[in-house]
Each structure stands twice: as C-alpha cells, then as structure tokens.
Design a protein around this nucleic acid. Sequence first.
DNA 1: ACCTGAACACCGTTCAAGT
DNA 2: ACCTGAACACCGTTCAAGT
Lengths: 231, 231
Amino acid sequence: MSKPSLTPARSKRVGSQLTPEAIIEASLRIAARGSADAFTVRRLGEELGTDPTAIYRHFRDKDELLLSVADRTLGEVLDSIPPGLDWQDRLRALAHASLAVALKYPAVSSAMASRTTRRANEFRIVELILGAVTEAGLDGVDAAVHYRMVGDSLLAYVGQRAAYLLFDPEVRAADESSWTREYRLVDAHGFPHITRLGQELAEVTHDQIYHARVEALITAIERRAQAVRGA
Amino acid sequence: MSKPSLTPARSKRVGSQLTPEAIIEASLRIAARGSADAFTVRRLGEELGTDPTAIYRHFRDKDELLLSVADRTLGEVLDSIPPGLDWQDRLRALAHASLAVALKYPAVSSAMASRTTRRANEFRIVELILGAVTEAGLDGVDAAVHYRMVGDSLLAYVGQRAAYLLFDPEVRAADESSWTREYRLVDAHGFPHITRLGQELAEVTHDQIYHARVEALITAIERRAQAVRGA
DNA sequence: ACCTGAACACCGTTCAAGT
DNA sequence: ACCTGAACACCGTTCAAGT
C-alpha cells in the first residue's frame, strides 16, 4: 500500500476545502475495500490527503460520520429496487438489495446492525416496508410490529453476513470448516441428529439460509393478515 | 476504580497458578457488568490480580478465550431449558433462554453473533434444534437448512439486542427517541404510512418484536413440514 | 513452567498552534 | 474559519527478563 508517486491519494485538495460530501465518499471507498482496509480515522485522512483529525471539523465524531455514510448506502439499496412489484416481491427485492450493499460495504453494515440512521433514506425504506405490510392487509399495531420484525431481521441478517466478512481469514476458515471437522467428530450416541445429518449440514449454502429467512418473514405477514381478515 | 485495601481484586492468587477455568470465570464476571466494564485484556488482568499478559500462557489469543467463554454461556442457556416440552415450546424456551443469557453477558453475545464456538455446549444446542425440526417432520436438506435458519436467526437477534446494550448511553438515547422525534417530523405527503402509524411505531415493544420473530421461525418450520407431508 | 513488564503497532479524540 | 500535529487515553500482542 505504498503511495503512488503522482497524487497523494485522491483529489489534490487544491486549496479547496474539505466537505462532508468528500468525507462520505472517501469513507465509502475505504469501506468498499472490505477487510483489506480498515475503516479508521487515520486511514480516512490518508484517503483524503489531509490530517486525520480534519474530519472533526465536519462531523462531531466518527459515529455521526458513520450514520451519514450508512444512510448513503441505504440510498443505493433504494435505487436498485424496481417499481411495479407486489408487496412480496418488493420485500424480496429489498432483502436482495440490502444484502448486496451490505457485502459491498461490510464495515458500514456490520456497525449498523443494531442502529438507526434517523436520516432521509432510512425514512424511505421504513415507508417502503410499511407500504408492503399495509398492502398485505395489516394496520395499526400489527403493521408497526411486523414492520419492525422485517426491518430488524434484515438489518440483523445482513449485519451478520457483513461482520463475518471482516474477520481474519484464519478465523473465518476455522468457523467455515467446523461442519467438516469438529461436527464430524461428535459422539454418535450422544448426538444422533448431528451424526445423521452431517453431510447435509456441511453442504448448506448461504443462499438456502437466506431464502428460508426471507420467506419466513413474508409467510409471517401473510399469516397475520389472514388471521385479521378472519376475525 | 482504585483498588480496595484488602485483597487485590478477587482470589489472592496465593502462590497458586492461573488456570483456564479461573480466566473464564473472571471473563464472565466482567462481561456480566455490561457496558459499565469493557471486556479487555487489561481489565481481565486486574480482575485476576495478575499481569494482563498472563492469560497468553493459557489461551492463544483473546479470540480463543472468547470462544471458550461463549461456550460456557451456552451451558447456562441449556441448563434453563426444562425437559418434556414439544418441539415448538422447546424452541420457544431456547429463544427465551438465549435472550436472557445474551442480555446477562452482552459483550460475549455481541461478539459471537456471526461466530461458532465449535465446542461442547454448542454441539448440544445444535442437537436440540435438529431434534426439534426432526420432530416437526423435516429431514435431510430441509432439516439442515431450517436448523441454520433457526440457529443463525437466534444468534443474530440476541447479538443485535446485546450490541445495543453496549453503546454509549447517549447513542442509545438518540436511537431510542427517533420514533418520537425524527420520525414524527417527516413530511406527511411524502411519507403517509409513517405519518399514519407514528403513534404505533413509537409504542412497539421489544417483547412484541421478539414474539413476532420467534413465531415466524416456528411457522416457517410448520409450513415446510406440511408441504413435505403433502408431497 | 509460568508470570512480569516494557515495548510495539494500533485505535478515537482533544486542543493549542498555525494559516 | 479551517487544518495541523503533538498528545492523551486507550486497545491486543510480543518477547526478553525474571522466578
């Protein structure tokens, strides 16, 4: 990672001021490098060609910057959801886009798994989910609770996947191989199910789990809507 | 946090050696203090009355210690699941116990949300979930995928709740109040659903969301079992 | 064989000093 | 008004030195 000889890092900073916009974009570039490049204040200074502490002139602290950066990634999620879908496919498209963006910017998504940006694009996603559960037939408390179920679950899922991407390669390798190593060595009498399903457990894919988790949310909404209609 | 005058911190370390056991127990005591006391190597040294680096004689690194500590907390989860429940109630009891233990040791649960301990108590929990989905009527790939759906979802959920507990009080306060502040100020024409459901969104409880998320998992298993029986 | 403690390579953030 | 850079209070981990 030694500097190339021409420009310091990116824009020359030709007398021009640093802007929140430029800081957010530099953050996205760093985050997009995944585990290869930690998203730190010092690294951000390098990327911007300024002193690391210069960002404190534009953001109160790193957390406030993170919220702004995260809301920008939510914009990317929204942009990739096509119009004209029914509520189920709208939620499927949201899940798909959320995962893609989370894997693109793992440091951001991982840090946001328990958080709220409280910014413009988050409002739009909330409105989108509320529209979906409303179209499904829910209202009032039911709509609010099922919105939170969907929103929190998606956030948790993509955050879980993103965090995994950020671990040391050797930690990840050890976790990944557990189904073909530690779990294959368990006592057959004490653990009959693990023994019987060893092969299948080792071969489960992220895609299968993703599908099961997303469809479980949709089914739950359909179920509740049916119960409400029946009453 | 100045030392009291009598004993250094806990056991006197009366010539006796440090043991993995003592290190794990000290870790659990620190983790149980929540955000009041960060789970760091230096803090662990204080708690044990030894030099912080002494633990490297017993664990390769902090991650390996974390896995051992986490597996101990899984033992607490297992101990609080009563016998004799049908598969649905067994999963409900597992979810309930997992959340309770995660909120008791937030630093551990938060760090484990994307991880595997690959140790004894984890094997027992996997066996428990596989037993439940088998009793529900699933087998082979279906059993494996639905086990992962349940296991990963519970881990993500309790990790999400635990991580939230560890944030600065002011960060948490800002996130919590968003439903009564930022979300109440959105434009009514651009965000009709948020506007209409503002009150309900602000009043949703953790309990309601937890219930919806856990029941969604159980329903998904029931659904798949019905589909398999029908074929 | 195990523990100590200095040291290293990192973090986020503050604040006086520069322009 | 904004950026710089030294400094502070932290991290996890290594390694030579002690016992």
